[in-house]
């Protein structure tokens, strides 16, 4: 009996499920050498709308989980990524990386994920404070997630940028919608498969593959999206359009930059501060 290769269907990841685009559209993904790789689902405006709904319904549970629990769940994702390391490397090579670069990028991406996971139960300690006030109150401030973060990550390095932007958003309890560029769709799907088999609740990360110019304006203007990471937007006109739309409901915005905020600063982009005046009671 001859071997029959089982081909992977490249779908979107919305609400914890792998779904085809509502529009039924696909695009052809070719490798760096120009050979056919796959037909990948091409996300539409309505897929983005559905993703916002599932992100919103996931937010309460994910942001309400204890920071310790969130850290454990995220660490588990890194464990699964480690198990699929070879697959990630292969996909990066297919899209044009050298073996050495690909291996390095995957290792860095997994390290970065673990690094973010560790921040989960430390954020409140570093960002929070007990504030001296002139009155009989115990006054303290704690960081809280801003809500739904729409993310358009940079295309190169594809996996590392995905991990860096997604983990920074969800570690504090935000839920997210990622528009992965066509070129990044292989690693984006593999990352989705890692998330689907981990304990990250459905809807916390939604991944759409397709064209940011088509979908991003709908997320930028969406009143139920609280923040938008525009680091992967390279066209100036589009960037201006998106920033204008995002201003409509006062979204937090990350602009594209050669020097994107690193580390804790990246996490802090998607945080609000809640300050409580607690009567001392004597």
């Amino acid at each position: 009996m001859s071997d029959l290769t089982v081909m992977r269907t490249h779908k979107l990841f919305i609400g914890g499920a792998f779904v085809r685009s509502e529009s039924g559209r696909t695009f052809v993904l070719n490798s760096a050498k120009g050979t056919f790789v796959a037909n990948v689902a091409l996300a539409s405006r309505k897929d983005a709308r559905d993703a916002v709904l599932s992100a919103r319904s996931a937010f309460e549970k994910w942001s309400g989980a204890t920071a310790y629990n969130r850290g454990q769940v995220l660490y588990r994702v890194a464990e699964i990524m480690q198990g699929r390391k070879d697959q990630f490397v292969e996909e990066l090579i297919l899209m044009g990386s050298s073996k050495r670069d690909a291996t390095k990028e995957v290792e860095q991406a997994i390290d970065q994920w673990v690094w973010y996971a560790g921040w989960s139960d430390k954020l409140a300690m570093v960002n929070g404070s007990a504030n001296p006030v002139a009155g009989n109150f115990f006054n303290f401030s704690v960081p809280e997630p801003t809500g739904i973060v729409a993310i358009i990550p940079t295309v190169t390095p594809s996996l590392y940028a995905l991990v860096d932007s997604v983990a920074a958003a969800i570690v504090s309890g935000n839920s997210s919608i990622v528009i992965a560029a066509k070129k990044s769709s292989l690693v984006a799907l593999s990352l989705a498969e890692c998330l689907a088999t981990s304990d990250v609740p459905p809807g916390v990360v939604n991944i759409l593959t397709g064209d940011a110019a088509e979908i991003a304006p709908w997320l930028a203007s969406h009143s139920d999206v609280n923040a938008i990471d525009l680091s992967g937007i390279s066209k100036k006109d589009l960037l201006i359009e998106l920033e204008k739309a995002a201003a409509e409901n006062l979204k937090r915005v990350l602009r594209p930059d050669k020097n994107l905020p690193q580390g804790l600063n990246r996490i802090n982009l998607w945080l609000e501060t809640k300050t409580v005046w607690h009567p001392r009671g004597y």
Binding site: W218, S221, V225, A245, E248
Partner: peptide, 9 residues
């Protein structure tokens, strides 16, 4: 309005 609304509204 031409853009999506949300439960906050």
């Amino acid at each position: 309005s031409g853009h999506y609304s949300g439960p906050d509204y």
